[in-house]
Design a protein around this nucleic acid. Sequence first.
DNA 1: ATTTCGTATATGTATAAATATTTAAAGTCT
DNA 2: AGACTTTAAATATTTATACATATACGAAAT
Lengths: 234, 234
Amino acid sequence: MTQSTENTSYKDIKKTVLARIRSGEWQPDSLLPNESELATEFSCTRTTVNRALRELAEEGYLERRRKAGTRVLSAPQRQARFTIPMVRDEVEALGGTYRYALVSCDQKTAPDWLTARLALSPGQDVVHVRCMHYSGNTPFQYEDRWIVTDSVPQVKQANFSEIGPNEWLIQTVPFTNVELTFLASRADAALADFLDVAEGEPVFTGERITWLEGRPVTFAKMYFAAGYRMTTQF
Amino acid sequence: MTQSTENTSYKDIKKTVLARIRSGEWQPDSLLPNESELATEFSCTRTTVNRALRELAEEGYLERRRKAGTRVLSAPQRQARFTIPMVRDEVEALGGTYRYALVSCDQKTAPDWLTARLALSPGQDVVHVRCMHYSGNTPFQYEDRWIVTDSVPQVKQANFSEIGPNEWLIQTVPFTNVELTFLASRADAALADFLDVAEGEPVFTGERITWLEGRPVTFAKMYFAAGYRMTTQF
DNA sequence: ATTTCGTATATGTATAAATATTTAAAGTCT
DNA sequence: AGACTTTAAATATTTATACATATACGAAAT
């Protein structure tokens, strides 16, 4: 009954603007009318137009600069957003039963490559955890993780035989910055055994470095089982 | 001189809220004070608090529901955002000189696997383009692309000998939806030659399906040269 | 005990009106 | 011509206020 015939919500404006870009009415690189003019056109306030355009810029369709105005981006730099789930959730979402197994856990001095990679001081201690994540009895992911003892002193008391280091870390220490890398690597003999693939097979691999206020917390390599695909829609 | 001692911008509020979460003052799963109370505390309007909390929720730190309030997410589902650049830009950003070469371009009936993958009607026509992207004289990416003729009729007149199909598509047809997948695949003999790696080597691979208002536009497989790493920070 | 319904409450959005900030562009002075 | 300064135009943010909308929760009805 109270059906609104107005088209002036910021969402409607977003849709309209996007439609005009897609239809070619507003060509790439061209300047849009300014916020006030659009507010007049849509008979709403500039605030509402502002929100619509701000979000479209955030989504990578527009570029906005004070005084210069708002223009249509020629090559919409749409960003793919991947939600990085915890292994357990990912396995369960795929209908499997999650199982965790510790492979090894040692405290030692950081190897040179890790010292370099994380910009540690020479001789800093780390805890090295290797473990497996299964979906049922099928290997799902092999995890090779290093935790910087100085940044996470509690790790010396941690017991990773029942809980994975990732879940433990999330419950224990916050983080402020993350670097995430994906690549294709080769299964060496050991990894091939863990993941139950032939030696030399391609393995989808993720690397994750986590910092807390500039201090390195952990470096993890995650090797996924054969056939793994990381997908997103947008 | 005019240094503001106020801490009431929405950005300051975001920082403060985040700090309280990190310090444990606001525990995971706990409810935050409501917007009005926070507005009073920060001596600003509810609008400002709203924006701060809305963005923090967007960034994956908070969960908000009407009437239920705002609560701290226990496992912050921080999303990795990858900006997917065009090959040319990526090569140039790495300091290389971009070079493009067409390998083949044919119009044909869509193969069965593609018909299934894109939910085409049996017998629909596609243009199949294969091409290489180089950084200087080093192979950078091998691209294997299929363009649905019915969705992009202009493709029949397109000439891909000078311009890559991706750049052409971006200039020619808009898109509304994208599915992006990454995986590790094995270089077969042909691919190994193109990318100048040994047969059987792991190859970081992207697949991209693009739609325009529900109609499939294009399917592309992108095979990256050895050593490619896709990285993001957040 | 279970369902239905009403209502209060917290977030969501919009308006109107300022002030703040950035910066392109024009003007001024060597 | 080049360097600095001013101006004005656009976006960015905040305030104050109102109304909209979803929904948790409790009361009433079955």
